[in-house]
Every structure is written in C-alpha cells, then in structure tokens.
Amino acid sequence: MTTPETSQPTAPEPPHGYTSDKDAYLRRMRRIEGQVRGIARMIEDDTYCIDILTQVSAVTKALQAVSIGLVGDHLGHCVVEAARSSDDEGAAKVAEASEAIARLVRS
C-alpha cells in the first residue's frame, strides 16, 4: 500500500484487538439483530409491555457484553501496542479508550 503524499510503501495496519474473536463477535451481533427484529414483531403484534421491556433488557445486556469484550480487546492490543511504540501514542490511546468507556457508562 502507498500513501498519495509520498508514494512510499506503508506498513499494513496491524489487526484490531478483536480480530482473533471476530467470528464470535459477528455471531453475537447476528443473534442480537434477531432479538431486535423479534422485539419489532412483538410491538407489531401488540405484545404486553412488560414482555417487550424484558426483551429490550436482554438486548441491552447483550450489547453491553459485546462492548465490554471490545474494550478489553482494545486495551489488551491497541493500547498496549501504542504504548510500546511511544509514550505519546500510548497516552493518546489511553485517552481514546477512556472517552469510549465514558460514553458506554453514560449510555
């Protein structure tokens, strides 16, 4: 791969921290997608509110589990690699991770 500014070859981006678990993440997301479609059907079918809320809670917990896994993968791979590269890169990745975690906690 080359960059347009320099036409010099660049090293490929290292795989993301979740790469080794990518298939598992995709399976989980497809399962969550099916749950969300099921909730839409429940609403279309005028299902009892509490039953819908129970399913919404299950989807929320499933998404939180994916988020926690991705945070762990990011810290264990991306942040560690950046810290090995330089203090500045490591600090930037830690700040980025902190912001992402704060967004997750607020949601």
Rank of each mutant, 00 (worst) to 15 (best):
E99N: 15
I32A: 02
R84I: 11
A91K: 13
A97D: 03
I32C: 02
E33Q: 03
T19G: 14
L53N: 14
Y48E: 06
A83G: 15
Q35L: 04
Q35R: 05
R84Q: 13
L63Q: 00
R41L: 05
Y25E: 03
Q64I: 04
V71N: 02
R30Y: 04
S57R: 01
T10K: 01
I101G: 06
I50M: 10
T3Y: 12
S86F: 09
I50C: 06
V36D: 04
A62L: 03
D73W: 11
Q64K: 06
S20P: 10
L75Q: 10
M1K: 01
Y48T: 07
E89Y: 11
A62D: 06
S57P: 00
P15F: 12
P12C: 10
R31E: 12
T47N: 08
T2C: 03
K61W: 00
S57Y: 00
E81G: 12
V79Y: 03
S67V: 10
Q35C: 07
G90C: 08
V56R: 01
T2N: 05
G38I: 01
P4K: 07
I43E: 08
D46R: 10
V71K: 03
I32V: 05
Y48C: 03
D51N: 00
R27I: 10
S7C: 04
Y18N: 05
K22M: 12
A58Q: 04
L26V: 11
